[in-house]
Amino acid sequence: NEEPLPEGWEIRYTREGVRYFVDHNTRTTTFKDPRNGKS
């Protein structure tokens, strides 16, 4: 039961299956979860 991502964020996966987060607001990507700060 995960809380929803902030507005404008999306979860994607690399070809290796590593989860990362896309911030469409700033057009950046990060491996850090914007909901809780954990990677």
Rank of each mutant, 00 (worst) to 15 (best):
F21R: 00
R35E: 02
R12W: 07
N25E: 07
W9T: 01
I11E: 10
V18G: 06
D23W: 03
K32W: 08
K32I: 13
E2P: 10
F21W: 06
T26P: 00
F21M: 00
R35M: 03
K32M: 07
E16M: 11
R19Y: 06
E2A: 11
K32G: 06
L5Q: 02
T29K: 14
P34L: 01
E2K: 10
G8M: 04
N1K: 13
P34D: 01
D23K: 02
R35D: 02
T30P: 01
L5K: 01
D33N: 02
R35H: 03
K38Q: 15
K38F: 15
K38V: 15
P6Y: 03
R12M: 10
T29F: 15
P4F: 07
Y13V: 08
K38A: 15
L5E: 02
L5H: 02
R19N: 04
V22A: 05
T29H: 12
Y20N: 01
T30H: 09
E3W: 09
H24F: 09
P6N: 03
R15E: 13
R19V: 12
Y20A: 01
W9D: 00
G37Y: 11
V18R: 14
G37F: 09
E7N: 12
T26R: 06
Y13G: 01
V22G: 00
V22R: 06
D33T: 01
P6S: 04
N25F: 08
N25K: 09
F21L: 01
R15H: 13
I11D: 03
R12V: 08
G37T: 11
Y13C: 07
R12Q: 09
D23H: 09
G8Y: 05
T30S: 09
S39I: 15
T28W: 06
W9Y: 05
S39F: 15
F21V: 00
S39A: 14
Y13N: 04
N1C: 10
G37L: 07
R15V: 13
L5V: 06
D33R: 02
Y13T: 07
P4D: 11
S39R: 10
F31T: 10
T14K: 02
I11P: 02
T14E: 02
S39C: 13
P6E: 04
G8A: 04
E10V: 08
W9K: 00
N25M: 07
I11Y: 05
R35P: 03
N1P: 14
T30K: 03
E16T: 14
G37S: 11
E16V: 08
P34Q: 01
R19I: 14
K38D: 15
D23L: 03
R27W: 09
T28N: 08
Y20R: 01
R35G: 03
V22Q: 05
G37K: 08
